[in-house]
Each structure stands twice: as structure tokens, then as C-alpha cells.
Design a protein around this nucleic acid. Structure first.
Length: 550
RNA sequence: GGCCCGGUGGUCAAGCGGCUAAGACACCGCCCUUUCACGGCGGUAACACGGGUUCGAUUCCCGUCCGGGUCACCA
């Protein structure tokens, strides 16, 4: 007993507080029964990628509006840290509308349970570590990397489980005197857990997503504090999630195999463990098999990719939710205008195995999402995107917003709107023919229409474009033109007696369409010409007629 | 290799012992229609395999196979 005290004094600074101090300081949150406290704990070892966004979304949704969702930064690995990664992650989340209630935020920390960056919590970890040493549950280990490597090779050769446990945990049996001597020599060391567990025993726990899971108890003397005094993930997880009063740890399922370690840590530290929920990762198909979406290998894993392409953040979130929870699509159909954060995400309804990332589905969700936006919303969102990623489009649009609004209001704000655009980088091409400087006609005629016939149609139509009235009046005008030129004024008549006509109204429209828009397909012709105005319509008709004369 | 988790159409995914095995995306066809898009209708396409248990298994149990994860002073 005295030995432990002695060892603790040897190992820790004298000003390290008793852990009771922190228990006292970070009181229970006093939330109502059933209210969840969740968190996202990214490490700034890269930029914001889809997996983190996914996890953030689920944690945010799980906490709901009554619960607390906070952001903690796991910056304990200096070596792998990426410059600017932290900002990218935090700002990225917020730009996607996933806003933490507390924790590390762009304008500083918010909340009573901080600091929320692990670097700043060193004393807290040391206090918890000291508690373990005092209880005889942790010890310093002086093994070098090389020595560890040697025992690992030995274990491999003997075909036994690799790891620092049992007889292989050499420093476990060091006497206080030996430790003192090494410490005096300035030997570097890590602090290890003296695991009281045995592989023979089983631990069981209920995962909120995967259900009941049974695994062998942890018997490995895992590292608690690295040689620089910074905690490992496992140790920091136990200390932080206890002190920050997390109720539900929702994280990627790559963590599932370390749950026995975590449970043991909570027990030894005297903490009540949180509920665990392990979510399946988003996968990517490659060469017939699938693997986890990788931030290094897959460009579409970076959230920045979606921003650059001009996906609507909410649409991406909706897509993610269709992957996450089977009930979401039905809910969406029943609640077309509801905010996604009103969806009641049930952990036990979540998918157990990883879903392949499906770009087709994302595109579909996005198209639907954008089709339901108002003209104003489309314009402001598109402008916002263009400002960053397409300067010329931005200039064009903002130089005459009323004109741009007219374009985007075609078949919008109606019960069954058009679904033309899935992401903003498709917009420039989609509206190109509305602007003279981007109008690049690819004239194309129906097969049964000769150039001469096209010229005739265009010239005759130009005499009387019928743009003064409404759409019906215009279309009646086109019908009259058909009749006078020998085309059927509707397809049925033509089909009944094809020999009687040169073609039908579809052909006539096609000729006008190609002249006005320079392409085969477009939204409603009348709307387009009305927006272009009489003069520009006329000059396009003329230009096309000239083209076909050649 | 040990330990975990998973396996319903190309993809996502309902389904909890008895159903002609939902739905969405993609694909194909038809209808609507001045084109496209929308919309409507229809179609192709699935319970990995082998044993049990049971009157009856996609559903429960075991095994095989396949896929994924994990075995660091990384998270």
C-alpha cells in the first residue's frame, strides 16, 4: 500500500489534484431521464470526410433537441496532426448545419465541461492515472520499441496471441527499487494498466445498434499514458466521457473490439460506463469487393468534394440518413416539408452492416431536394456556391438577378416541379443558352426535316412569333403555322395519316427549339422565349435560318 | 491466424415461424406530351450454401463459405 503511494509520488507532479476534485467540479448534468448526451470526438489528423460527417449527423440526431451534443477534439497524436484539419472539420460541420450544443466551436469553447481539447486536459488524465497507480492498477513500463518488437516476434513464432499481457508483461513485476533506479537514470516510460482481467472470462454488453455482444475479457496491459505523458485514446475516452457525462457513445464500429478494454477501464476507475452504439461505416466498392471509404484513396470521401461539386448540404444529409436509418425514406414521403432534424432517429433501427456509397441515389435525393426549393432559395444558394467555385457564373448571375430568377422559376414552385439540377456545378451548362456569350448552338434537325424545310419554318415563324399573349395563344399560333405549311397540328393526326403531311407539330417545335436554344431538349419553349425577349428570339431565329441555308 | 460483427434483387432496404418476399435508386417498356424533365402504369431482378428444430423456415440453432472490422506509445 505504501509502495503504491511511493510510486505515485515518484511518477506524478506534486500539484496533481485528487480525482475527487474533478468529480466535484464536473457535476452530473441533471438532465431528465432518457435524455441523451452524445458527442463527436474527431482527431485533426485529416480533413473533414464523409465518415466523420456521418457520425456527427447521427450523434446530433440521437441527442435530438432536448439532449446535448458536444464536440471534443482528440488532439493527442501530434505526429499525425494535419495543418488546418481542425478548422476544416469544425467549420465543415457547421456549414452542413450540424451544430454542436457545446464543446470546441469556431468562436471559442462553449459549455461547463471543458476544456474540450484533450491537449488541455493533461492534469485531469494524470489525476485519473494517479488514482489507478494508488490502487495498484497501473505501473510504469520501460520497455523499448525494440524489446516490444522482439517479444512480438517471439509470440508470433509460438503462435500465441501478440500483446503485452501475463508473462509477457515484463515491467509488471519491476520492484519499486528498480523503478526508482530507472527513473533516476531518466529512462523514458509509459504508464500501463495492470489488467486484472483474464481471457478465460467473458464480458457481455448490449450495443444499441448491434445488440448483445460477448467477448473475452481484456487481459492486456494497455498503455494509459504515452511516454510524453499524453493519454491514449482508450484512457482519454474513459476519463472524458465520464467527466463530460456522456450517456451514449456513438462511434464507428472499428471500435467494437476495444469495448472490453473500455468497460474494464470504466470499472477500475469507478465510473459508470456509457451506452455504446457502433455504427457501420460507409463503404466503397472496388474490384468486386467492398471496403471502408478511405479519406486517402477516395476523393468523394472528402466533404470538400461535395462542396466543390455544389451539392446542397441538406441533400447530402438526407442521403446519409437514407443510409443510416431504414425508416427515414418513409418518413420523408409522409413529411415532405419537415426539417430532417425532426426525424426521430432510432439507434436500434440503424443498419448493422456497411452500406456502399451510392452516387446515383445521392444524385436522386439532391435533384428532389433542389426541385423543392423556392426560386429565391435556389438563387441565393447557387450564388453562394458560384462565388466560391465559378466566378464567371457568379458575375453573370449577379449582374441581373431578376433575369436569373426568371430562368430558375420555370416550372418551379408548383406541385410537380422539374428536376433538372442535382448539384450547382450543373447549373452553368443548364442555363447557358439564356446568355448570348455562353450560347453555343449545336443545331440539330429531326430526321424528316430538311434544311430547306427548316428555313421555311423559321422564316415563317419569325414573321409571327406570337409572344405577346399567354402560352395557349402562342401554341395556337404554332398550330396555325403547322397547318399553313402542311404539318399536322397534333401527333395523332399525323400518325393516322402520315402521308398527308410533311411532318407534325413536334417537328416544327423541334426546329424552333434548336434555333432558340441550340439544343434538342429544353424546358418549355414559350417560357424560354418570353425570358429571352422578342428581339433576341428574333435574332436567334434569323441566325439559325442563315445556318441552315448553307 | 485469434477474437468480434455481418450476409434478402446491381445498390439501399422492409420482413422477426405460415405473405404471390414491401418500397426506393438504377435499368427496360408503355402512357401522357411540341422535346426533355415531371407524372402515371408495368417489367427484369433477391432470401450465400449444407445440415438440423418444426406440420411449416428468409425468419430459430449448428457448420461451411464469403465480406467487413480489430489485434500500436493511431485515433
Amino acid at each position: 500500500m505504501d509502495d503504491n503511494r511511493y510510486l505515485a509520488d515518484l511518477l506524478f507532479d506534486s500539484d496533481i489534484k485528487d480525482f475527487e476534485y474533478y468529480e466535484e467540479r464536473y457535476q452530473s448534468r441533471g438532465l431528465k431521464e432518457g435524455v441523451k448526451v452524445t458527442r463527436l470526438a474527431p482527431s485533426p489528423t485529416g480533413y473533414l470526410h464523409l465518415g466523420v460527417l456521418y457520425s456527427a449527423l447521427i450523434n446530433r440526431m440521437a441527442a435530438g433537441k432536448d439532449g446535448v451534443f458536444y464536440l471534443r477534439i482528440e488532439d493527442t497524436d501530434k505526429k499525425r496532426e494535419v495543418e488546418g484539419g481542425l478548422e476544416d472539420i469544425v467549420n465543415g460541420l457547421i456549414s452542413f448545419g450540424i451544430v454542436p450544443d457545446e464543446g470546441y466551436l469556431p468562436d471559442g469553447e462553449r459549455g461547463e465541461y471543458g476544456p474540450y481539447r484533450q491537449r488541455l486536459r493533461r492534469d485531469i488524465y494524470h489525476s485519473a492515472a494517479k488514482r489507478l497507480v494508488l490502487a495498484g492498477l497501473a505501473y510504469p513500463c520501460f520497455c523499448t520499441e525494440e524489446e516490444l518488437e522482439v517479444t512480438r516476434k517471439e509470440q508470433e513464432a509460438k503462435k500465441v496471441r501478440p500483446g503485452y499481457y501475463g508473462e509477457y508483461a515484463r515491467c509488471r513485476s519491476l520492484t519499486t527499487g528498480e523503478i526508482k533506479k530507472k527513473l533516476d537514470d531518466g529512462a523514458p516510460y509509459v504508464l500501463r494498466l495492470k489488467s486484472p482481467g483474464s481471457e478465460e472470462n467473458k464480458v457481455t454488453f448490449t450495443d444499441a445498434i448491434k445488440g448483445k455482444i460477448e467477448m473475452p475479457e481484456n487481459d492486456t496491459d494497455i498503455v494509459l499514458l504515452k511516454s510524453d505523458g499524453i493519454p491514449t485514446y482508450h484512457f482519454a475516452h474513459a476519463v472524458d466521457d465520464h467527466l463530460m457525462r456522456t450517456t451514449h457513445v456513438i462511434r464507428g464500429d472499428e471500435w467494437i473490439s476495444s469495448v472490453p478494454v473500455h468497460l474494464q477501464l470504466f470499472r477500475l476507475l469507478g465510473f459508470k460506463p456509457p451506452k455504446y452504439a457502433h455504427i457501420a461505416p460507409i463503404m466503397k466498392s472496388e474490384g468486386g469487393s467492398k471496403r471502408k471509404l478511405s479519406k486517402r484513396r477516395d476523393p468523394e470521401a472528402a466533404v470538400k468534394y461535395f462542396s466543390e461539386q455544389g451539392f446542397e448540404p441538406r441533400a447530402v444529409l438526407e442521403y446519409l440518413l437514407t443510409i443510416a436509418s431504414s425508416g427515414f425514406e418513409d418518413w420523408r414521403r409522409a413529411n415532405k416539408d419537415a426539417d430532417i432534424f425532426d426525424f426521430d432517429l432510432r439507434l436500434n433501427k440503424m443498419s448493422q452492416s456497411g452500406a456502399l456509397f451510392d452516387m446515383d441515389k445521392l444524385l436522386d435525393v439532391s435533384k428532389n431536394y433542389i426541385s423543392r426549393m423556392s426560386t429565391e432559395a435556389v438563387l441565393s444558394s447557387l450564388l453562394c456556391w458560384a462565388q466560391k467555385y465559378n466566378a464567371s457564373l457568379y458575375d453573370r448571375l449577379s449582374s441581373d438577378k431578376a433575369y436569373a430568377a426568371a430562368i430558375f422559376s420555370i416550372d418551379r414552385d408548383i406541385p410537380k416541379p422539374r428536376k433538372d439540377i442535382a448539384k450547382w456545378n450543373e447549373a452553368a451548362e443548364f442555363i447557358s443558352y439564356f446568355y448570348d456569350d455562353t450560347f453555343a448552338p449545336q443545331y440539330e434537325l429531326p430526321e424528316n426535316i430538311s434544311s430547306a424545310a427548316a428555313v421555311e419554318i423559321l422564316e415563317r415563324y419569325a414573321e409571327e412569333p406570337c409572344l405577346g399573349g399567354d402560352k395557349t395563344q402562342w401554341f395556337d399560333g404554332v398550330k396555325r403555322l403547322c397547318v399553313s405549311l402542311g404539318y399536322a397540328e397534333n401527333t395523332k393526326e399525323y400518325k393516322a395519316e402520315p402521308d398527308k403531311y410533311k411532318g407534325h407539330i413536334g417537328d416544327v417545335s423541334a426546329v424552333i427549339r434548336t434555333a432558340v436554344t441550340g439544343r434538342r431538349n429544353s424546358p418549355d419553349l414559350f417560357e424560354i422565349m418570353r425570358i429571352l425577349g422578342k428581339d433576341r428570339t428574333a435574332s436567334r431565329l434569323k441566325a439559325a435560318a442563315e445556318y441552315f441555308k448553307k
